[in-house]
């Protein structure tokens, strides 16, 4: 690490020692080169995908993002319905997942004894390890029928006056995708929240308790209120994951390019249309349009993840008193 002084300036008297330093320099160059390879990889991803997406972007221009028209036979493409599907399913996922993630992070970090927080933390982390395809299978054959027969009739009865819960219960659709996504992003948000809470000094908590606050008041005043920006970063990271999630969503969202307010309706997301159509695109323009969607997904993920990481690291620095 950096604290270790560099050996490269040491006495270059004997030839044997000079050789050793040559080896050091070579080693340094090699590992540095491999690290730069990451940058090369990222840049070449941008270039390759951009090149393939260019024909469609040139053909349709901005219209591509604001029209809802996905006609593979007529070679006319507009991605609005897909953008809507991605954004809406992610919002549903966040609405369900954010309270749960923040709650479980608070519980594990602040309330639970160690013997309980370890195994529960493991269970939540394992949610992130299960392959997306397994969630899709489970969502399609277990969750969707359950939503159709139990949850959706109840929602219709209680909130049927809202346009969100309109129409016949289908099971498969936006709601199902939202629930599956919520399960999948919970470990991401929860683990970043735990990091953020852990960065707050114990003294802040002790101060609140010392002034006579109850346990909850302490959590509210010294943990939640101080960590708002960090939690926002965690939520954005979860959002980034939800945007790019492909297989599980493809299997449970119904795959129809339409913009319907009702959460019962099938939809299509930017990622799911890629999984459905990319391997058998009808024409060059179709392939290019699909790639253009992939390019948007890429750019959005770069921006979202970049900004979230920035926010979280800034929060942690502030708490450590470095800024």
């Amino acid at each position: 690490m950096s604290q270790v002084a560099s050996t490269t300036e040491a006495i270059p008297q004997r030839s044997r020692r000079r050789d050793l330093h040559l080896a050091d320099r070579i080693f340094y160059r090699v590992v540095k080169g491999t690290a730069w390879g990451m940058m090369v990889l990222l840049l070449s991803m941008i270039v390759v995908i951009m090149t393939m997406a260019w024909p469609a972007l040139k053909e349709f221009g901005l219209r591509f993002f604001v029209t809802n028209d996905w006609d593979t036979l007529g070679d006319s493409f507009g991605a609005l319905a897909l953008i809507y599907g991605t954004v809406m399913s992610s919002i549903v996922a966040l609405v369900i997942s954010v309270p749960v993630s923040v709650g479980v992070a608070l519980f594990l970090n602040e309330l639970a004894p160690r013997w309980l927080s370890k195994p529960v933390g493991f269970l939540v982390e394992m949610l992130a390890a299960i392959p997306s395809i397994v969630y899709g299978l489970w969502g399609l054959y277990v969750l969707a029928p359950f939503l159709r027969s139990e949850v959706q009739p109840f929602l219709s009865e209680a909130f049927g006056f809202l346009p969100l819960f309109e129409g016949p219960p289908l099971g498969v659709g936006m709601l199902c995708a939202g629930v599956v996504l919520a399960i999948m992003i919970t470990p991401t948000i929860a683990s970043v929240c735990r990091e953020v809470f852990a960065a707050i000094p114990v003294a802040v908590r002790e101060a609140a308790l010392g002034l006579g606050a109850t346990r909850w008041e302490m959590l509210r005043i010294s943990v939640l209120r101080t960590s708002v920006s960090g939690v926002v970063g965690a939520v954005i990271l979860g959002l980034g994951r939800a945007f790019g999630e492909t297989m599980a969503v493809t299997m449970v969202i119904g795959n129809i390019e339409q913009i319907k307010l009702s959460l019962y309706e099938p939809a299509q997301t930017m990622a799911s249309i890629l999984a459905n159509q990319y391997a058998e695109a009808d024409s060059d323009l179709h392939l290019s349009a699909l790639t253009a969607i992939g390019f948007c997904l890429f750019v959005v993920s770069l921006v979202v993840n970049g900004s979230a990481r920035f926010v979280v690291s800034k929060f942690e620095k502030r708490e450590r008193g470095e800024v």
Binding site: M38, M45, F243, G244, T246, G294, F298, S301, N305, R309
Partner: peptide, 16 residues
Amino acid sequence: TTDLLASTPSIVVGIF
């Protein structure tokens, strides 16, 4: 950069 690569949606890697 490595963090950004790690959070790239896997379907985008497929396109690349």
